[in-house]
Amino acid sequence: MSRSFLAASMPAPWRIAVTGVALVAAFVAPPVQAQVQPSPDLGQLTQRWINDALQQTPQSTPLRMEVDVGALDERLRLSPCTHVEPYLPAGARLWGRSRLGLRCLDGATRWNVFLPLTIKAYGPAWVLTSNVPMGTALTEADAAQAEVDWAAEPASVVADPAMWVGQVASRQLLAGQTLRQAMVRAPHLFKSGAQVRVVAEGPGYAVTATGQAMAAGAVGQTVRIRMSNGRIISGIVDETGAVSAAL
């Protein structure tokens, strides 16, 4: 049996910050020590630790958190312990499917066990209303707002329409999918092999020339350009489709 609880049931309202790729997904809570009886209720100890850890995150985008705590293997027989410390194992996170470590620091036998966790974070996002072929620019009509689990996938949710309207589908997108960063990209301003304007700047000078793009380029991307003398340089594509390079 698993034990579920809602963070919303806590006495005071709280929020989780979710930013771009890194997000709560990267949050690591400080160790919280708990004094318990020789036969501790590990479920309650775990619930208190997670509630405290989630409350410590910065406030930004409001999300409704739901945490499901799994059960230890019934075959385990833990010796009495008067000091159990919950902790996040290296590489673990309080987001999506994870696990929480419990270690005995004061007992006849030191033990260390892991509880499986599933942490869901429900909030507003944009869900596709129809299929979008790869390479097609998205419009406002392609998605509708709905409440979804932000933690269901590793990629960050694109919550701001300005970040996806006009962007191009990086792969075939299907109706019902939540728009996430890995699903869209900036449109290409030129194709591989196209002649592009190159603006090269150095100390006290600026030179404009033409070169051949060695790959398609979008705003903000770094691309390689073959110049007329055969030299290959790298530069960043600007909003006009020109490539800015430093020499």
Rank of each mutant, 00 (worst) to 15 (best):
W111N: 02
L128D: 05
R103A: 14
R103V: 09
M134C: 13
G135T: 10
P86M: 10
P154I: 12
D142P: 04
T129K: 09
A143H: 01
A162H: 11
L76T: 09
P161V: 02
A121W: 00
V165W: 00
T118S: 14
I119H: 03
T109S: 08
G166S: 07
Y87I: 10
P124T: 02
V148E: 04
G91W: 04
G91Y: 00
N131H: 07
V132A: 03
V113N: 06
Q145G: 08
P133M: 11
T109V: 13
R103D: 07
P133S: 11
R103F: 08
F114R: 14
M163V: 10
E85D: 13
A143F: 00
L72Q: 06
D142I: 11
R99H: 04
A146K: 13
R77A: 11
P86D: 05
A151Q: 07
C104M: 07
T82Q: 14
D160S: 09
V127A: 02
A125E: 01
M65N: 08
R75D: 14
V132T: 03
S98Y: 01
R75F: 11
P161W: 01
L100M: 13
T139N: 07
A137W: 10
L78P: 06
V165L: 08
L78F: 11
A71I: 11
K120T: 12
N112G: 10
W150F: 15
N112T: 14
A71T: 13
S130D: 08
P133L: 12
P86Y: 03
T109G: 07
V67Q: 02
A137I: 11
T82R: 15
A152R: 14
R75Q: 14
Y122E: 07
R75A: 14
L100R: 03
G101L: 04
P86V: 12
K120H: 13
A155I: 06
M163A: 15
P124C: 07
T129Q: 07
A144R: 13
R103S: 09
T136H: 12
E66P: 02
V132H: 00
D106Q: 15
D149Q: 11
L117W: 03
A125D: 03
S79V: 10
V148Y: 00
A141W: 05
T82P: 03
G96E: 06
A155R: 06
A143V: 03
A144E: 10
V157P: 00
T139I: 12
L94P: 01
V127Q: 06
A152Q: 15
E153Y: 08
G166D: 05
L105I: 13
A143R: 00
V132P: 00
D73L: 12
R75C: 05
Y87T: 05
L100W: 03
C81H: 04
Y122P: 04
R110Q: 15
V165H: 01
A146F: 02
F114M: 14
A144C: 06
T109N: 07
L76Q: 08
E85P: 06
A137K: 14
L94V: 08
E85M: 15
E153P: 02
D68L: 13
K120V: 05
V69F: 09
M134A: 13
T129W: 00
T118K: 12
A108Y: 06
P133I: 10
K120G: 11
S98I: 02
N131P: 03
S156W: 14
V148G: 02
P86R: 06
L88G: 01
V158R: 01
W150D: 00
Q145P: 08
